[in-house]
Design a protein around this nucleic acid. Structure first.
Lengths: 121, 121
DNA sequence: TCTTAGTAACCAACTATTTAGTAGAATAAG
DNA sequence: CTTATTCTACTAAATAGTTGGTTACTAAGA
């Protein structure tokens, strides 16, 4: 796949809607988006996403029902990867330490996560 | 505070250099940046950053030595905050769980962080 | 003094992104 | 058959971001 291209802010907003709704017609995306965008604006964005390989569609009569081809997880991962390298020398440990130091995550919550992964393996 | 404006990609690159060097003349920033940028390009970027309240400078003869006014920590925090809300319902716990699940951080490392914050309090 | 070099400031040109109008096809309604 | 509606596709226009040329100033050196 070639969804390597980076998304612009607006394209990402559209993806967020599609990740939420799983599948949607342009009109539905439009309704879900903040600050009412013009129908054609949304249509353009969704087609740009198609070009970039982020979405695909099923034909229903004359209209297209779009759905994500790239999932939220792998996209999030890519973004976080970038952040990790921009701000924490690529170390997730550093990033999490930072959260802890800023009280963004508590001792208790870290314990819970630890339990979670212990039980996974 | 008036450094609320968001930074563009290039502006952020310049900030990264300043965070690293602590203070620098345009020429030094230019040398530190990837893919040699034109001197004037760098100069423009740094002045845009000044307008946005991200940097300030000391005058040395005819030239300006720039330094960050916004620190890396608070900027990182802002960006991560955004990511957290875009991808994890604003929950840092969710974000860290995600890292753990993706094996971006190990059990061992989490234990270490936990120790760290236990000793802090 | 005159020239050269280095720099900030300004700004025009270019590229990328966002917005929305227009055209045309398909379909439904009168 | 004609008109209105709805949707995709295309594209022009507006806006934002990036790049580097030009100018003016100052200092240094011939």
């Amino acid at each position: 796949m070639k969804h390597s291209e980076k998304l612009t802010a607006k394209e990402e907003e559209v993806m967020a809607v599609l990740w939420k709704l799983k599948k949607a017609f342009v009109k539905e995306i439009q309704e879900e988006l903040e600050g009412n965008q013009h129908y054609n604006t949304v249509s353009t964005l969704v087609r740009l996403l198609e070009d970039k390989g982020y979405v695909a569609y099923k034909v229903f009569g004359k209209s297209h029902q779009y759905f994500p081809v790239v999932d939220k997880k792998s996209y999030s991962e890519k973004i976080l990867e970038q952040n990790s390298s921009r701000f924490f020398d690529g170390s997730y440990k550093n990033m999490v330490s930072f959260f802890a130091q800023q009280d963004k995550i508590s001792e208790q919550e870290l314990e819970e996560i630890l339990e979670l992964i212990k039980n996974k393996s």
